[in-house]
Amino acid sequence: MNEINLLRTHGPDAPEASTETLRLARDRLAAEFTAAPARRTVPPLRRRTLLVAAGAAVVAGAGVGLAVRPLDRPVEPLTLVAATIPEFPLTLRSRPATLSPPRYSYAPGQFLAVYLSRSATDDVYLSVWDSRPARIAKTSRPVAVAGRPAEIYEEPNPGGPRRLAMSWERRPGQWVSLTGHGMFADDAALLRLAEHVVDEPQQVPLRVRLAPRGWRVDMFKDDTILTLRGDSPDETLTVQVVPHRDPDLLRNVMGAREERRVTVGGREAHLIRADKIWFLQTEVPGGAVVNLQLPLRLSVDQVVAIAEQISVTPRRP
């Protein structure tokens, strides 16, 4: 028997994970799901993968949706109407000089503004919730923000700087949390930041002003990805800001069948017909390049009309 096998059979062993251990670990993970948009920017090199992955999710969803739809029921044409994009309701009236302008992420029930620091270790997150946010920490300490009860708790941040969070019910039905890292992971620093949280709605930079009737914003991430959804799983509109044009969409878009040139707002754009989706890449006013994915139920004219209503506000320095 060699040493590898001896390690397997006679090496240090340990009891199996208890049900309680597994449950606690799973709960911590589940709590993280709601805070998912808190991720930093997706590295540029990964963006295409992410895009294709998003496409795959759409395709998978489409398969499920079509499978449950009665075959004899005609698919109604989609009508385009003005879309409403949520605005972040708050702002930091006085932003510390070390923090960049916020980047926004949204999921139903939670809206997040991420203030990245130039040092990459002193970031601040400002979140607005419809209900009391779940927290991972087991213990907290009470404080007061503008006379309202608040709690401060330390959150685990494996491999990263210290992370301290403070949450309070700012008004009935509006919960706010401030999360500080590094130099902002400090009670006094968080309380100072909280003094500067004011009602001042902020437009998010990535917007689309036209969408099929009844489709609502499902999520956006980091000012980079915006998704609207209808009632069925295949009804998904996704816009993604990408660093540059892809010269070979036909090869790189999953399931691509054919490519055609279209005009979007006077600019030449590339439209791919894939197995289950339209995929359009175009430049928008200001120079940003975006990818738009829509189900094949929409006509080419509708895809182009939606693309013409996409805007990307250049990031402030």
Partner: peptide
């Protein structure tokens, strides 16, 4: 990536 809870 699009639906975090799908990670479970």
């Amino acid at each position: 990536l699009a639906e975090p809870e799908r990670f479970a």
